[in-house]
Design a protein around this nucleic acid. Structure first.
Length: 458
RNA sequence: GGGGGUGUAGCUUAAUGGUAAAGCCCCAGCCUUCCAAGCUGGCUACGCGGGUUCGAUUCCCGUCACCCCCUCCA
C-alpha cells in the first residue's frame, strides 16, 4: 500500500513540476502518449546519455545507429509482425469479455480432441455461454499510416513497433562500414509505436513510446554466455544509477508468454506498485536466435550472414537483444528516488520534506544559485556565478521567497546542490553549498565552485 | 470495443435553478542574513454540445476525457 501511494505522489509531482504533461491536454487530452516538460526532457536526455555512454561509446564491441521509423512494409511482413501483431478477437455477447478466437479454438481442441465445426460449439471461458460471439474483428498492434498523396492501400505503411528491425536490415551495412565482426552489437534509441488496446498506468503503457535497444550479434555457440553477460550488464546499469535492488527483479519468461521471435527471455521488472500487479516490466533481454537475420535473408535475398575468414565458416549470427523501455526507465527512476523525510523549520519544529534522490548524473538540474537577498549587490555576483556554471551544467537561478522554500523547491525536483550567495560572499569571496540529501552545508571559495561540483556530479 | 466509476482553479475541497467560496501552490510588492515564516495585492475553474427553463455549474440527453476490470506489451 505504501508504494501505491508513492506512485500516486510521483505522478502528481511529475505533472505539478513539469516532468510530464498530458498530451493535448487543452483539448481534453489523450492517453495514447504523454508530453515531456522542461524537467522531464532533461531527465530523459540524461538517461539516454548515460545509456549511450555505457553501452555504445563505452564499449569497443558496440556501435550506434539511427534508423527510420517508417520502413518498407516488407520489413514487417518478413519480421513476422504483420502476422503476429494482428489478432482476431471475438466478444462474448453474454458477458462482454473479449477473447482471441484462435485461443478459444485451441482450448476446444485440447479438450475435445477435434476441431469445432463452427463457433457455435465453443463456450465462453468466463461465463460458459456457448456460441454467443460477435464476428471476429482484427486487432492490429501495428500503427498504420498512408504515405503518398493517394489515401489508399497502395500507400499503407507501418510505424515501427520496435527499433530492432532497423538494425537487422542494416546488418550488412554496419559490418562493412564499421568493420565489425561478431561478437559485436548495434545500439539504437528511438520512438516506437504500438496500438495497445488499453494504454494506462501513467507513462508505463502508451501507444507512442521510446526504446533503447541493443542487437548483439554472436556465433550461435556463444549465444548463451552473451545472454548471461547482457542480463548482468543491464541489471548493473540500473543499480549503478541508484535504483534500489530490492525493487528490481529478474523474471524468466515462460515459453508460452514469449514473443514470437524469442528462444529465451529474461525481463527486468521494477516494483512500481501498480494496482493489481505490483511489478512492471522495465526491459527484456531476449535470445532472438537467427530468427530475424534468417527471415530477412529469406525474404529479401540479401545474405545477412557473416563469413569468418579464420575458420572459413559462413553462418547466420544469433542475436541477443537487450531492449529497454526508456520512458519506463524514467518512471522507475522517478518512483525509486521519491523520498519523504523531515526537515527543520523556522518555528523550531519539523516539516515533511519531499526529495527526489536522483543520481546526480540523472538530476535535471545539477545546481541552483540562490542569492539570500534580492538586493542588487548579491544579484550581480550570483548571476555571474550562475553564468559560469552554465558553461558545464543545467543550472537554475531562484531569488523568489524565503531561502527555506527555495531549498524545498529544489529538493522536490532532485537538484543535488544549492549554492547560496550571502552578504559575507562580498567580503570572503565564498559561498555556501548545501547537499540535497544530507542538508549539510559547506563554505566554498567562489573560484573552487566549479571543481567542487565537478568532483561530485559523477 | 464491453462493464463500472468520476468530471468545479495547478492541487484538495465547498456552495448554489439567479454565472461560484476557501486552503495550499504560483506570480508581484513589502519584509527577511540559511531550511516551506509574516503582510498586501494578483492570476486561474463549473470538460464539451444540445434540451427543459425567464434564467442551467446545478435537472435531462448526448458526447468527450480520465480511473478500474477484460486484452496487449518495452
Amino acid at each position: 500500500m505504501a508504494t501505491e501511494t508513492a506512485l500516486d505522489k510521483v505522478i502528481s509531482l511529475a505533472k505539478r513540476r513539469g516532468f510530464v504533461f498530458q498530451s493535448g491536454e487543452i483539448y481534453g487530452g489523450s492517453r495514447s502518449a504523454w508530453d515531456y516538460g522542461p524537467l522531464g526532457t532533461e531527465l530523459k536526455e540524461n538517461i539516454k546519455a548515460e545509456w549511450w555512454q555505457t553501452f555504445v561509446r563505452g564499449r569497443g564491441d558496440m556501435v550506434g545507429l539511427d534508423s527510420a521509423i517508417i520502413l518498407p512494409s516488407a520489413v514487417w511482413e518478413a519480421s513476422g509482425h504483420v502476422a503476429t501483431f494482428t489478432d482476431p478477437l471475438v466478444e462474448c455477447l453474454q458477458c462482454h469479455k473479449r477473447h482471441r478466437e484462435d485461443h478459444l479454438i485451441e482450448a476446444f481442441e485440447d479438450k475435445h480432441g477435434r476441431t469445432p465445426a463452427d463457433m457455435s460449439e465453443v463456450p465462453c471461458p468466463d461465463c460458459g455461454t456457448k456460441g454467443k460471439f460477435t464476428e471476429p474483428r482484427a486487432f492490429s498492434g501495428l500503427v498504420k499510416s498512408y504515405l503518398g498523396v493517394l489515401d489508399d492501400a497502395s500507400g499503407l505503411h507501418y510505424l515501427r513497433p520496435e527499433t530492432a528491425q532497423g538494425i537487422f536490415v542494416n546488418f550488412n551495412n554496419v559490418v562493412t562500414t564499421a568493420r565489425k565482426k561478431p561478437p559485436f552489437g548495434i545500439g539504437q534509441i528511438g520512438k516506437a509505436f504500438r496500438n495497445e488496446i488499453t494504454p494506462g498506468n501513467f507513462i508505463f503503457r502508451t501507444r507512442e513510446f521510446e526504446q533503447m535497444e541493443i542487437e548483439f550479434f554472436t556465433h550461435p555457440e556463444d549465444a548463451g554466455q552473451w545472454f548471461d553477460h547482457w542480463v548482468e550488464a543491464c541489471y548493473s546499469w540500473f543499480t549503478d544509477l541508484g535504483l534500489n535492488p530490492d525493487n528490481l527483479r529478474k523474471f524468466d519468461v515462460p515459453e508460452e508468454e514469449r514473443a514470437h521471435y524469442s528462444a529465451g527471455t529474461i525481463d527486468l521488472e521494477y516494483r512500481f506498485g501498480f494496482q493489481g500487479s505490483e511489478w512492471g516490466e522495465l526491459m527484456g533481454i531476449a535470445n532472438r536466435t537467427d530468427y530475424d537475420l534468417g527471415s530477412h535473408t529469406k525474404a529479401s535475398g540479401a545474405k545477412l550472414q557473416y563469413f569468418d575468414q579464420g575458420t572459413g565458416e559462413r553462418y547466420t549470427p544469433y542475436v541477443i537483444e537487450p531492449s529497454f523501455g526508456l520512458t519506463r526507465s524514467m518512471m522507475a527512476f522517478l518512483v525509486d528516488s521519491y523520498t519523504e523525510d523531515e526537515a527543520p523549520n523556522t518555528k523550531g519544529g519539523v516539516d515533511v520534506r519531499t526529495v527526489l534522490k536522483l543520481h546526480p548524473k540523472l538530476a535535471p538540474i545539477k545546481a541552483a544559485v540562490l542569492p539570500l537577498s534580492k538586493k542588487s549587490e548579491l544579484a550581480e555576483p550570483s548571476q555571474k556565478l550562475a553564468a559560469e556554471l552554465r558553461k558545464h551544467w543545467n543550472v537554475d537561478y531562484d531569488d523568489a521567497g524565503a531561502i527555506g522554500r527555495r531549498y524545498r523547491r529544489q529538493d522536490e525536483i532532485g537538484t543535488p546542490f544549492c549554492i547560496t550567495v550571502d552578504f559575507d560572499t562580498l567580503e570572503d569571496q565564498a559561498v555556501t553549498i548545501r547537499d540535497r540529501d544530507e542538508m549539510t552545508q559547506e563554505r566554498v571559495s567562489l573560484d573552487q565552485v566549479t571543481s567542487y561540483l565537478a568532483t561530485r556530479l559523477i
